[in-house]
């Protein structure tokens, strides 16, 4: 990690926050989708600068596909929901909840490891199982990409859970979309 990396990360973070605000506030749905895509590509750059090429690659390709999906769906459509200014009580309640959440977050994050010293590197004082993964991955699994070695060998059970989640969400998407299709089909025929 060079000296320039924090500057780049903060710049990307600012860009992503800006993109998120644009995506939420703009009325044109296509512009909102494109702003969201910009946020996603910014996130993939962040992963790249933090030295996680696996995540960066996955983020880029997922972002491209989701962008195509969403542009296909929302092109030439406007966000027709009306904006009602929220009441004072609601704003106060939201501010209160945000304050409480922020306080808890600050308390929780102060206990975390400092940025740039991951758990994997703690070896001398307290040997961790994460460091054993790093040391043993190539000998135990033969996979030179240690991310894959952990995902599909040491922690394959977790990956099975993830695959189940994806499967369930896709089945859910099928169920929702298919129902709309059937009703429309019955209406047109």
């Amino acid at each position: 990690m060079s000296d320039l990396t924090p500057v780049v990360l903060y710049a990307l973070l600012g860009f992503m926050i800006l993109g998120s605000i644009v995506a939420v506030e703009i009325a044109d749905l296509l512009s909102a989708v494109i702003a969201m895509g910009a946020v996603g590509f910014g996130l993939s750059l962040v992963y790249l600068f933090l030295g996680a090429p696996d995540l960066a690659l996955t983020q880029v390709v997922v972002e491209i596909l989701i962008l195509v999906f969403l542009i296909r769906l929302v092109v030439q459509r406007k966000d027709t929901t009306e904006q009602h200014p929220p009441g004072a009580l609601l704003v106060g309640g939201i501010m209160l909840v945000m304050g409480v959440v922020l306080t808890i977050m600050v308390m929780a994050f102060s206990d975390m490891h400092p940025f740039g010293s991951p758990l994997f590197s703690r070896t001398a004082a307290a040997p961790t199982i994460a460091f054993d993964y790093l040391r043993e991955a190539v000998a135990q699994t033969g996979a030179t990409n240690i991310v894959t070695a952990i995902l599909l060998d040491f922690r394959a059970y977790d990956t099975l859970g993830e695959a189940t989640v994806i499967f369930a969400s896709i089945v859910g998407a099928y169920a929702v979309l298919r129902r709309v299709g059937r009703i429309s089909k019955g209406g047109t025929e």
Binding site: L65, V68, R72, T141, G142, T144, N145, V147, L152
Partner: peptide, 25 residues
């Protein structure tokens, strides 16, 4: 080559889906 280079089943699968989506579009 997910176990040798960055990537793996998820990223590669999304790329293949994108290729099919390109054909459909």
């Amino acid at each position: 080559y997910g176990h040798v280079t960055p990537g793996g089943g998820f990223a590669g699968g999304v790329i293949i889906a994108a290729a099919f989506a390109l054909i459909v579009l």
